Computed example of a mutant assay.
Amino acid sequence: MALGTSLQRRWYGGGKPPLWTLPLEALYRAVVARRAERFRRDASSVVKLSVPVVVVGNITIGGTGKTPLIVALARAMAERGFKPGIVSRGYGGSERGPYLLTGSDDPSKVGDEPTLIRQSGFPVAIGRERPEAAQLLIDAGCDLILADDGLQHHRLGRDVEICVIDGERRLGNGHLLPAGPLREPASRLAQVDFIVVNGHTGQPNEIVMTLEGGIAINMADPSRTAPLADFAGRPAHAVAGIGNPARFFASLTAQGIAVDGHPFADHHAFTRDDLTFADGCPVLMTDKDAVKCRSFARENWWRVPVSASLPESFYDEVAACVARKQS
């Protein structure tokens, strides 16, 4: 069993952290605290942009549903009169940036998540230094910046912070890396403006988000679509290179599909061999994985898109919060 897999089982399975991780956790905690304090003390180290900035992120390792939330938020803010653009680090891609995506970029260059977000029709810029990447969006006419996975990127000034939590796994064992899954202490949640919980019933101060998707789109011929119900009662391979593959597998199982799950590391660079199975059963994958597989797709490969559903009142509150902090 890989070390990362073993640790994640302990993080989320209720087991105690290995003793060797505890000194490293203490060191990590000190580094995180020192870095945050440096940005609090030195205002000149924080770049304040000329337009509002909304940061969407999490405080745990692994997927929580940030990407569909970013897309849903961009659409909602556009409906409320903003011209949003999304800034991302571009994790998994070779481009260091700053770089403004064109819409026809190779995911291996710009990253899978930025590629997927760009396909939603909104401007996307990537860069290890997010303020510089965000400026490209402002120069392109955007009047609102949505920062993908930017809670820990303190150099980018922000007006609103949204933290996304996995409703099933929550904060795991509550320990910081590597003893647990936390990037920052749980107390960080008290500092954000909104907590969005992906699935399950949230706490009174949380907004519940559900991921909805009931169709599959053929990878070789996008004009072919099928309800997921058409796959029920028969076996299918499910492939996921995301932060929490089990969530994707469970969503397909809930549709009555006999899932043979194949988890890969987050942002895995897929090859045709990864998705070639001798039995000829259909292969279902997430949209995030599909953007990396289109150039060698086969007729029995299908992508399963999802969209985030949140209360309209949440979007109204975000827009009001932006306006309030800018006044």
Score class of each variant (00 low, 15 high):
residue 322 V to W: 00
residue 316 D to A: 15
residue 207 I to T: 15
residue 15 G to P: 03
residue 275 L to V: 15
residue 262 H to L: 11
residue 28 Y to N: 08
residue 149 D to C: 12
residue 6 S to L: 13
residue 99 Y to Q: 06
residue 248 F to C: 01
residue 245 P to D: 03
residue 297 A to D: 04
residue 135 Q to N: 12
residue 21 T to P: 05
residue 87 V to R: 06
residue 77 M to Q: 10
residue 58 N to F: 07
residue 80 R to D: 05
residue 81 G to H: 05
residue 311 P to F: 01
residue 18 P to M: 10
residue 314 F to W: 12
residue 29 R to K: 12
residue 56 V to M: 04
residue 41 R to G: 14
residue 89 R to L: 07
residue 325 K to G: 03
residue 30 A to P: 00
residue 22 L to S: 06
residue 12 Y to S: 11
residue 229 A to N: 05
residue 96 R to M: 09
residue 223 S to V: 12
residue 230 D to L: 06
residue 28 Y to F: 15
residue 43 A to Q: 13
residue 170 R to G: 09
residue 146 L to Q: 02
residue 76 A to K: 02
residue 250 A to N: 13
residue 251 S to D: 05
residue 41 R to W: 00
residue 12 Y to K: 11
residue 195 I to G: 00
residue 121 G to D: 09
residue 19 L to G: 14
residue 307 S to I: 09
residue 16 K to T: 12
residue 190 A to F: 05
residue 50 S to C: 00
residue 130 R to C: 10
residue 33 A to I: 07
residue 47 V to E: 14
residue 161 E to V: 10
residue 298 R to W: 00
residue 133 A to H: 02
residue 59 I to E: 00
residue 28 Y to K: 02
residue 294 R to Y: 02
residue 266 D to N: 06
residue 120 S to M: 08
residue 264 F to G: 02
residue 86 I to E: 06
residue 266 D to Y: 08
residue 10 R to F: 00
residue 280 G to W: 05
residue 225 T to V: 14
residue 190 A to D: 15
residue 250 A to T: 13
residue 7 L to I: 08
residue 313 S to I: 11
